[in-house]
Design a binder for these strands. Sequence first.
DNA 1: TTTGGTTTTTAGCTCAGGCTAAAAATTTTA
DNA 2: TAAAATTTTTAGCCTGAGCTAAAAACCAAA
Lengths: 222, 222
Amino acid sequence: MRLSSSQENYLKAIYKLEVGDGIATNQSLAALVEATPASVTNMLRKLTEAGWVEYQAYQGATLTPSGRNEAVTLVRKHRLWEVFLVEKLHYDWDAVHSLAEELEHIGGEELINRLDAFLEHPAYDPHGDPIPNAKGVVRIRQHAIAASEAVVGDRFVVCGVKDSSSLFLRHLDKLSICLGKAYTLIDLLEFDQSAVWTEKDSALTSVSNEVAKNVLIQLTDE
Amino acid sequence: MRLSSSQENYLKAIYKLEVGDGIATNQSLAALVEATPASVTNMLRKLTEAGWVEYQAYQGATLTPSGRNEAVTLVRKHRLWEVFLVEKLHYDWDAVHSLAEELEHIGGEELINRLDAFLEHPAYDPHGDPIPNAKGVVRIRQHAIAASEAVVGDRFVVCGVKDSSSLFLRHLDKLSICLGKAYTLIDLLEFDQSAVWTEKDSALTSVSNEVAKNVLIQLTDE
DNA sequence: TTTGGTTTTTAGCTCAGGCTAAAAATTTTA
DNA sequence: TAAAATTTTTAGCCTGAGCTAAAAACCAAA
Ligand SMILES: [Mn+2]
Ligand SMILES: [Mn+2]
Ligand SMILES: [Mn+2]
Ligand SMILES: [Mn+2]
């Protein structure tokens, strides 16, 4: 039984919630797939019927092993297409999500593995999120913490974002913060929790706490 | 008003029929979009309502200028994706049609123009069909005739196919006939109308009349 | 010009995937 | 623990895009 695009979106949404808070409630799902809770109930019943999801009334949904498999493949497809759009078609990183949201539903294993090879097996997507490999294994990003956890004197490299909305990504562009850049945290202002970062002792960047909470970093030694 | 994938397929089908025989009858459309004539009637009414098609009961359908525009853009998208799949992902030319049939419905002008630039503005798709440019202009292939029209002694280059079914394309693969190859027609056998082609006096290729009718060539001077 | 065949349209149905409003279940608060 | 608030489900409806079977229109022959 082939999944529709809509069904695939539901599986991916359940997966995201499971990886995050742990529970895919009716309402959180509704928010993610942009439908009403009533529609979610309806779809969950069908996905349960078909063996992709486990679900009992009022209890929320979890993925079966095959459901999880589908979801991981979708995440892989989504992130590989994002890499393609940014690396090859030179889209900005804030503009690729919605296109990938459509492209992820096309074709099967064959297409995505060819795309993966063409892109030379990238490990991360343009937002720093890890790309599952062909076997569905997601290599976990090591030691990533929110930039808001850093203390004065820490050196770090920006490696991801928590919020990948267009609005936030374009804000980072304005601060010229991008993945891979190395900074030192030189000050934390008590007044508003904002931070001052410096990029190898040159320009200073002032970063609000709201921003720091949504930037993922890896601390670097020394 | 945004077109659905299904509606886009109808516009493309009408366009193909207009370019070919000239008339998009209810039945020929049904065959192209793989639906029943009843469903076609239904859809044509909606497309007429929305201004993409002109159509009166029992008279067949024609595209309005905006409908034709959409159709040409779709053909452009389809053929560019086919180029991508063959050139970059190394698919065989007989395997790309159905994927392109889905990819063509994704995104808009922006995506397709970026893809076009990435592919360096190809003029033809993997089956030798011309790719309309961003303004919707289709450059007509010059002097192409069916290989069955050639006479003994003619030199020519293979430049396209009339039948682009998987079955036919794989047959050409077996004969190692591909686009761009140059041959001389050295014999026409009266018994079964089959032809003998030679590639710069080396290997001989025996080509049935059925095949020759579906291969497009350009005669070369001298 | 009447008859018969073909094509198109109409009528009525189905299915996926949505929606709203109301009912039921669950959870929180007093 | 009873009431209130929240969440989920149910019921009933809608739209897009298909389908079949029957009626209507059109075309071609006799
Ligand atoms: Mn999607
Ligand atoms: Mn991403
Ligand atoms: Mn298509
Ligand atoms: Mn083609």
